[in-house]
């Protein structure tokens, strides 16, 4: 089917050779200039003082603390947002209720609001001058300029990813198979684990991957709530910025190289998952 339709399109959209080649050249040029060259520079800079300097930069106390904090943030936010995403997608695709469209819009909110604003909202709520500031101080709970604030901000920023991935997929899938499972005597949980989950697993993993990439790479919102305390409230992206501002370029680029590696891994996994998802969808 698809090969036939692409053939038809190719013959109707048969542009002259020079146009095709120049478009390809422009696209490639942009990718090289804005993606490959910077990536290369990051690596060159990271190793500019030698391999030993690179590894000792990675071994610094503050760098390790930043990596730990980034990992911790991802470990808390990704599972929570996975549960939230599945629940939201389930509610939206399987039930009819008032305000459904509003809920879908709300899920998109973190995408449409600038991350800095998202961070500021948390400062306004939990900061010293914020709504809950006095009560929190009185009870000796620190949220802003501490780890809970970073986790909260990341949670907010990354919560659309899983739900956004699952909603269209589950809508397309329909609920007949789930109804069939129920009619055969399966309980709700068995239906979910034996029928729903196997069907949505690739879309779900894809959403989790994107969610994780953003959770580890988020800068704006986290920057507002973190307070940039070295070794305590700096995540990896924040640590890179702080190091760079202090002219510690090896440390900054070493940190950046870790983030870049993470991005490349994400891209590879993402392609793999897309391919898996497509082949499982084509098979029916």
């Amino acid at each position: 089917m698809s090969s036939i339709s692409t053939n038809v399109h190719q013959s109707t959209l048969d542009d002259p050779k020079w146009l095709r080649w120049s478009l390809i050249a422009i696209a490639l040029g942009f990718i090289i200039l804005f993606l490959c060259v910077p990536l290369l520079l990051v690596i060159i800079q990271a190793f500019s003082k030698g391999v030993a300097a690179y590894f000792s930069a990675l071994n610094q106390h503050d760098m390790l603390a930043a990596m730990r904090l980034t990992l911790l943030t991802a470990l808390i936010t990704v599972p929570l947002n996975t549960i939230f995403g599945v629940a939201a997608a389930w509610a939206i695709t399987r039930f009819d209720f008032r305000g459904k469209d509003f809920l879908i819009t709300l899920i998109d909110l973190p995408f449409s609001v600038s991350p800095v604003i998202s961070g500021l909202i948390f400062v306004l709520m939990f900061g010293a001058q914020g709504w809950l500031g006095h009560w929190l101080m009185a009870n000796d709970i620190k949220i802003i300029f501490a780890v809970p604030g970073i986790v909260l901000a990341t949670l907010f920023i990354t919560f659309p990813f899983v739900a956004r991935q699952l909603i269209p997929f589950m809508q397309e899938m329909g609920s007949e198979e789930e109804e069939a499972a129920l009619s055969l005597g399966a309980s709700g949980w068995k239906m979910f684990f034996f029928i729903t989950l196997p069907n949505i697993k690739w879309a779900l993993l894809y959403g989790v991957l994107l969610c994780n990439a953003r959770a580890m790479g988020e800068f704006g919102a986290v920057s507002v709530v973190s307070g940039h305390i070295r070794g305590l409230t700096n995540t990896l992206p924040l640590h890179v910025e702080v190091s760079y501002n202090e002219y510690d370029s090896v440390s900054a680029f070493a940190g950046a190289s870790i983030l870049a590696g993470l991005a490349i891994m994400t891209l590879i996994l993402k392609t793999l998952l897309e391919w898996k998802q497509q082949s499982s969808r084509q098979s029916h």
Partner: peptide, 20 residues
């Protein structure tokens, strides 16, 4: 009674076989 406890067998129009 919930559908899973009615003791009915249901054949769907588009069969709804478990594709995996």
């Amino acid at each position: 009674h919930h559908v899973s406890e009615r003791g009915i067998g249901f054949v769907f129009q588009h069969y709804a076989l478990f594709r995996h």
